[in-house]
Simulated assay, not measured.
Amino acid sequence: MPDFTIRYAKKSELDRVNEIRYQVNRVHSNGRPDIFRDDFCDEMKNIVYKVFDGENSDVIVAVNGDTICGFATVEYIAKEKSPYGLQREFYQICEFGVDENFRRMGVATKLISFCKQEAENRGFDRLELDVWEFNEGAMRFYDSVGFKTYREYKEMDI
């Protein structure tokens, strides 16, 4: 089994991260073509550069040798107290993906472990993400590494 290193991305690696993001985009556009665009437009490509440059966000990569084989984009969220909820802070995984050629090799588990440790190092006590129900493999994976569902969105066609 290959050995993977997890670390913060370098700006020069973001084009490769976008290649994996495009694979993830296809999963979504195939799973819900009524919601997700099937192209990977420049606006979509540029998101990862904004995350990289953001003050409260980062891009994390999984590397095997010289090959980026997985990634996560994360944000550090501070929500103010509102009429509906208490003030809270959490570490959010916004995007997450593993190259199709490196799946089922432990990359995703190592990425989640890194995120969990980094969240703890930054003083967060909660890691959050969202996942689409059609993505059954991702749902099973997140459950297997300890995520719990605390909210669901429902829809009804009319």
Rank of each mutant, 00 (worst) to 15 (best):
Y8T: 12
A9T: 06
K10F: 03
S12C: 05
E13Q: 12
E13K: 08
Q23P: 10
N25H: 09
N25S: 15
V27W: 05
N30A: 11
N30P: 06
G31Q: 00
G31A: 01
P33R: 02
D38R: 04
D38H: 07
D42S: 13
K45E: 01
K45G: 09
V48R: 10
Y49N: 13
F52V: 02
F52S: 09
G54D: 02
E55K: 14
D58G: 07
D58N: 14
I60C: 09
V61Y: 00
N64T: 07
D66W: 08
T67L: 12
C69Q: 03
G70S: 08
G70I: 03
E75Y: 15
I77G: 10
A78D: 15
E80I: 12
E80N: 15
E80R: 15
S82Q: 10
Y84K: 15
G85S: 15
R88S: 14
R88C: 12
R88K: 15
R88W: 06
E89V: 11
F90V: 10
F90S: 13
Y91W: 00
Q92Y: 14
I93W: 05
I93Y: 05
I93A: 07
C94T: 14
F96T: 07
F96C: 09
G97D: 02
G97H: 04
N101Y: 06
F102R: 04
R104W: 05
M105S: 10
V107R: 09
K110E: 08
K110F: 05
K110G: 07
L111C: 05
I112K: 04
S113R: 14
F114W: 11
F114V: 01
C115S: 02
E118N: 10
E120K: 14
R122W: 02
F124A: 04
F124P: 08
D125H: 13
E128G: 07
L129Y: 06
D130W: 11
W132V: 00
F134S: 01
E136I: 11
A138P: 05
M139E: 04
R140H: 12
Y142A: 02
D143S: 10
S144Y: 01
V145Q: 05
G146N: 03
F147I: 03
K148H: 04
R151A: 12
R151W: 00
R151P: 06
E152T: 09
D157V: 14
D157Q: 13
